[in-house]
Design a protein around this nucleic acid. Structure first.
Lengths: 252, 252
DNA sequence: GATCATAGTCGTCTTCCTGACGATAAACAC
DNA sequence: GTGTTTATCGTCAGGAAGACGACTATGATC
């Protein structure tokens, strides 16, 4: 007996992306300006419909490539190329979240090293990296004094969930290296933690922790002075994906 | 301009439930027998279609109540009544996961205290609590020597993900109390950890850890000897939901 | 009723990890 | 050279956890 399609209500399924990076010591997210109603002209997270023959992760990887040019690599492999870390975040399906129709959005979280200016269909004015605090403050004023409209739809909630996921996950995994270029110094990795958590960490204890955890960092042999000061050893991300014991986030 | 419904492919959206409990020192999941094709007669996770006016969490709570009689309480509140903990797990949307049509399933994880026999539309033979190892072993043999068919659809993967979520989450949260009755002893809580992790824990160190963590356990004043031996203090779950530092899962 | 098995609770000791912080090293700017 | 910046090594005290001894209070058994 063939299945009766009238037995269930039809949904549209989309993927939305929380793409995070660290720029100028701040945790930033990719935002795109909406060109059409609803929420026309407002900032939103990038995303789009899942196609009929696509898996959810494929759809997310496709949207990520379209918006940033980044290619995602499998979450099970460590970040060693220039690709971004991509993982499913959560699914949002409030019946009223989109005024047009019933849309269920499967949000994904992407972590990327610092990138050149974003592109959104070639139009740079319609995509930007914005500090997450700026995107999350409701009805406040941005860095330039302009009033800031909240993100479209429920994207402020999605972004907040993505930021919280990233903040907690770098505690017990080597995920912070996804924010770094393929080779990086201990200091650069520490600045990632400081930016994501919004705290200052002791450079000496941090150095002891990350270099003392087996499999976390692999020295490449090279050094760099791109941060100024004494030359620092360069490392690549090691095979270890779980940090045990975890890196402790300082109390507020 | 109204939205063009032909611009996106229609999906069916379901919720599937990983309902876990601890019975006879084993982590068990609720399984229901499928009455119709595909996978007719095979065991599967309970679930169903999301209705047109329902949020995803509402749909999950409704399915949970239909299958078990349990009512879910908000995840932000600690487990103090007999309700189950319910949280979203992940979403599964492979184009071929259901041979009938394109179905996206938003899986949820429910943790419940030990319950009387399950009910599935009043027919007990179509629902049971089964140890998760039994449900996850592919093509093996169950406790009674009967051959075990793998779960229907991609439900083995969903169950594995739910079990892993539960195993990791009791490390750093007070979620293990969701497996306990409203009042419980330290030993009962320890047996929950032992069943979920499949390890043996030192009773003395465990006692020190959980009673020494502020806000985790609140003594009720009563005692019980239902586990035999010396009477044990009864506790309720305290307000603390996060354990810091976490309970450490022993190495394999 | 004495003995035993069971489970709960309190302490001790050692080891490891962390946070705080002093000190040294190697580059660049002037 | 002097000062500044960043990296790296070392020391010390406090806290948490694993290993484990000891004692307590029940019920079960002979």
């Amino acid at each position: 007996m063939p299945y009766d399609p009238s037995a269930f209500p039809p949904f549209a399924v989309t993927v939305d992306l929380v793409v995070l990076t660290v720029r100028r010591h701040a945790l930033c997210a990719l935002a795109v300006r909406r060109g059409e109603s609803p929420f026309q002209g407002r900032w939103a997270l990038p995303g789009g419909f899942v196609r009929a023959d696509e898996d959810l992760s494929q759809a997310a990887a496709r949207e990520l490539a379209e918006e940033t040019g980044l290619h995602a690599h499998d979450p099970s492999t460590p970040a060693q190329d220039n690709g971004a870390h991509l993982e499913q975040l959560a699914t949002y399906g409030d019946p009223d979240r989109d005024p047009r129709m019933r849309v269920v959005s499967v949000a994904h979280l992407a972590l990327a090293p610092d990138l050149p200016a974003p592109r959104a269909g070639g139009d740079a004015s319609n995509a930007r990296w914005a500090p997450v605090e700026e995107l999350l403050q409701q009805g406040g004023y941005g860095r330039d004094g302009e009033p800031v409209a909240p993100l479209a739809f429920d994207h402020a909630q999605i972004l907040a969930d993505g930021v919280e996921r990233a903040r907690s996950k770098i505690e017990y995994s080597s995920l912070a290296t996804a924010f770094c270029p393929p080779e990086f110094t201990v200091g650069e990795l520490r600045r990632v933690y400081e930016a994501v958590w919004g705290v200052a960490l002791d450079p000496r204890n941090f150095h002891r922790k990350v270099t003392g955890t087996p499999g976390f960092l692999v020295p490449t042999g090279g050094t760099t002075t791109r941060q100024g000061g004494r030359p620092a050893q360069l490392f690549r991300a090691g095979g270890a994906t779980l940090l045990n014991p975890p890196m402790l986030r300082p109390e507020v």
